[in-house]
Write a protein that binds this DNA or RNA. Sequence first.
DNA 1: CTCCGGATTCGT
DNA 2: CGAATCCGGAGT
Length: 188
Amino acid sequence: MSAVIRKLPRSFYVRDVTVVAQDLLGKFLVRREAKGEQIGRIVETEGYLGPHDLASHSSRGLTQRNAVLFGPPGHAYVYLIYGMYYCFNVVAEQEGKGAAVLIRALEPIKNCPEKTTGPGLLCRSLHLTRAHNGCDLRGDELFLALPTAPTAPFSIVARPRIGVDYAGPWARRRLRFYIKGSRYVSKK
DNA sequence: CTCCGGATTCGT
DNA sequence: CGAATCCGGAGT
């Protein structure tokens, strides 16, 4: 009896981004290519609010680069960082808000031979590039889903976001969330 | 057009 | 702590 994959509905993303960021913990990220299927369990996220959040890419207003961030929820916002890594985000709240959740670490579930801890390595492992920017997360290539089997309950830890010290008071907001005790969380 | 620096990672 | 390595966004 094969487990049924239940993709997260569009409505999952249309909520306060801090709620979405926490609710994404424990969910499955599924990546399908011709070669096969990879699955990781989300263990660490960061919420990025609208343009008022000085740590968010949306804080500089709508540009060509961040256009997807201001688009409809449930889509992938992927960008190149430091010239060598990609970061994968999930657009949240209503279209136009400019809010998203950065997926920072996965627990390997299926076909994850590379490291999946840290946003850059996670993208490298799942072969996520800017080609996926704007990708609908309810499609078949890349999507989020409920776990296929019951999982143990977990506690959520809230901490300041990583690498945003330039954002003044926003850098101190505890918008980074991770599953307490997970060995796959970055920067413990 | 030029310049700066970043939601990172790894090695020193 | 600095290098790797690219390009978006701001400034001239």
